[in-house]
Amino acid sequence: MRRPDPVALVAGLGIAALGALLLLDNEGTLHLRFGALAPITFAVVGAILLASGLSRR
């Protein structure tokens, strides 16, 4: 079985989570402000970069 690509996995999960949050915000379930959205975005991008850097040989 092919091993999953860690960068793609982290990026996929991160972007999916971000999309879910934005969807909930749009539906009115959540009320995201810039102060809350900025750290989440930073965390997703940071996690993708970290995974990419660590997976390089």
Partner: peptide
Amino acid sequence: RTGRAAVEVALGVALLVLAALFAMRE
């Protein structure tokens, strides 16, 4: 790491730390 991997790791760690700091501030 070295080269491009080092830059990515450094940026990744920096963004994660910034995210944690912004979250704590919020």
